[in-house]
Amino acid sequence: MNIFRLAGDLSHLLAIILLLIKIWKTRSCAGISGKSQILFAVVYVSRYLDLVTTFISLYNTLMKLVFITSSFATLYLMYVKFKATYDHNHDSFRIEFLLLPCFVLALLINASFTPLEVLWTFSIYLEAVAILPQLFLVSKTGEAESITSHYLFALGSYRALYLLNWIYRYYAEGHYDLIAIFAGAIQTILYCDFFYLYITKVLKGKKLQLPA
């Protein structure tokens, strides 16, 4: 565990908490893509199957449980409790266009062809693109509430911090995982446009609004 990894994990945790607070406080999930949230739930479940096979540390186990539980809590709030506020019409991204290619890619490019490893690899590929329905929703509506922007910023920062963690681990431990590094780089690149808008607008107290 190094400082980048810890900061990345905490940023990830903060993102999830911000999202739950936004939905709970405003009693609304307007502006949040349920499609992205479904994809994140698929990511956590397929990645953390090793909860039952491998024990790494108490920290690791607890964080995995928090990520899985909170993602299902988010889905419950969006699709059951505050269903009426869900922005159906704008959240029209077809997730099968992400799920299928990621699965095929995981079957083709993986570290070892075992069910757990293929599912882990699938989750890494899917996580890289899981935010696309959310970014698509923001671009369709042309704006995002400030707490939604903070959520997206924390969520994007997490993988960017992991990139620093991987650089650190390569030099400090000789450890590297090319699949995670490439997918993590793509994931971070997808947020760049948003990062730019966040820094130039939201941090200056303006609403995140896309140019018409």
Partner: peptide
Amino acid sequence: NRDQQQHDEL
């Protein structure tokens, strides 16, 4: 052992 890969990250 590549077959029993341990993923220690989240």
